[in-house]
Amino acid sequence: MTADRRLWFRNRPDCLSDPVCEGVCFDPATGETHFLGDLPALLLSVIDSEPVSVDRLTQRLTGADAIADDDRKKMIGALLFLEAAELVESRFE
């Protein structure tokens, strides 16, 4: 999967999260409110302005270097959702 070789980052002000409604966030960069599932919300919480690989994101989340292939595919899928919603950006390594 070509997305596997991308680096992920968000070079914009942080989204505003609602403290009670999990996954509800407002993106000041676009003015849009998003309703995120658990996985996209979790990934967004560890993405910052530094472009990093999926492996690095996994490490940030779990402390481990790698996860199962199926789980990795799900993470990439969620990252693509986030990118489509203009919440994160990516570029190739």
């Binding site: 403290p19 009670v20 409604c21 509800v24 407002f26 003015g31």
Partner: peptide, 8 residues
Amino acid sequence: DAAFNAVG
């Protein structure tokens, strides 16, 4: 964001 905060 004013609406986001108000609804929240």
